Amino acid sequence: MLIQKIDDEVQLRMFYEDDAEEFFNLIMESKSYLKKWLGWVDHTKTVEDTTQFIKSGHTELIENGGYPTSFAIIYKGKIAGTIGFNEIDKTNKKGFIGYWLGEKFQGKGIMSRAFKSVVDYGFKELKLNRIQVNVAVDNHKSRAIPERFGFKKEGMIRQAEWLYDHYVDHIIYGLLAREWKSF
């Protein structure tokens, strides 16, 4: 999946190096919003930092035999956020999805559409057996996404992540290939 048109408003595609400035600006516009749940935001200080993120996705493409694992979420022609597999365990055929949207793109159903497409891709193209999502306990918007698509709440990891000045617990959601249905 190099480009996946989901509908007339939303598509997923690989990041291009030319996207670095637009993507960096989205991060900066949403910085205080994103920092509540993402620990890497303060480490993104320049367009070059964003360029390095994009280049790492291209390296992963080669390592994954031509299958991309990180996607730009495009909404009406603009980068709205990102979604992808932060990690793929090839031996056990499981992937860990991560995602975020810029603040101004919230509440439009964009992430639900993108999430469904990536889960389909994970099970059908990447031939994963299990997809997992780890979400901070109090991040109710993010938790609603896997819940909406039938992921099972499998447990909680206490103090799973350090966010600037405190730890947050994570809820673990999982779904098996045999459980995935078209929603």
Rank of each mutant, 00 (worst) to 15 (best):
residue 94 K to G: 11
residue 152 K to Y: 11
residue 173 Y to E: 01
residue 104 K to V: 10
residue 48 E to N: 13
residue 64 N to V: 08
residue 59 T to S: 14
residue 43 H to G: 14
residue 155 G to R: 09
residue 42 D to K: 13
residue 55 K to A: 06
residue 3 I to Y: 12
residue 89 D to M: 09
residue 1 M to K: 12
residue 31 K to W: 05
residue 32 S to P: 04
residue 96 F to C: 03
residue 114 A to T: 06
residue 27 I to G: 02
residue 89 D to A: 13
residue 97 I to F: 00
residue 168 V to K: 15
residue 109 G to Y: 02
residue 51 T to F: 12
residue 65 G to E: 06
residue 83 I to D: 01
residue 122 G to M: 00
residue 59 T to C: 12
residue 57 G to D: 06
residue 130 R to K: 14
residue 105 F to Y: 14
residue 88 I to W: 02
residue 16 Y to T: 13
residue 29 E to G: 07
residue 91 T to D: 11
residue 12 L to S: 02
residue 176 L to V: 06
residue 44 T to V: 15
residue 161 E to G: 03
residue 181 K to V: 13
residue 132 Q to E: 15
residue 15 F to T: 01
residue 9 E to G: 07
residue 123 F to Y: 08
residue 73 I to K: 00
residue 169 D to H: 10
residue 161 E to D: 08
residue 25 N to W: 01
residue 39 G to L: 07
residue 167 Y to N: 07
residue 70 S to G: 14
residue 176 L to G: 06
residue 35 K to V: 06
residue 143 R to D: 02
residue 121 Y to Q: 04
residue 80 A to I: 04
residue 44 T to K: 08
residue 127 K to L: 12
residue 148 R to S: 11
residue 134 N to W: 09
residue 95 G to N: 02
residue 39 G to W: 11
residue 57 G to N: 10
residue 59 T to H: 13
residue 150 G to L: 05
residue 26 L to C: 05
residue 151 F to E: 01
residue 82 T to W: 02
residue 18 D to Q: 14
residue 178 R to L: 12
residue 23 F to H: 07
residue 70 S to Q: 15
residue 150 G to K: 07
residue 76 K to A: 12
residue 143 R to W: 03
residue 169 D to R: 06
residue 155 G to A: 07
residue 101 L to Q: 05
residue 7 D to V: 05
residue 4 Q to N: 15
residue 67 Y to T: 09
residue 40 W to C: 09
residue 14 M to I: 14
residue 20 A to G: 10
residue 37 W to D: 03
residue 164 Y to R: 12
residue 48 E to I: 08
residue 157 I to L: 13
residue 179 E to D: 12
residue 156 M to Q: 15
residue 131 I to S: 04
residue 101 L to D: 01
residue 169 D to T: 09
residue 13 R to N: 08
residue 157 I to V: 13
residue 107 G to N: 07
residue 132 Q to C: 11
residue 23 F to A: 04
residue 22 E to I: 08
residue 77 G to H: 06
residue 172 I to V: 15
residue 23 F to D: 02
residue 180 W to Y: 12
residue 177 A to V: 10
residue 129 N to A: 08
residue 151 F to L: 05
residue 123 F to L: 07
residue 130 R to H: 07
residue 84 G to T: 04
residue 86 N to R: 10
residue 63 E to W: 08
residue 61 L to V: 06
residue 178 R to A: 13
residue 102 G to D: 01
residue 119 V to Y: 00
residue 179 E to I: 05
residue 89 D to G: 08
residue 159 Q to F: 10
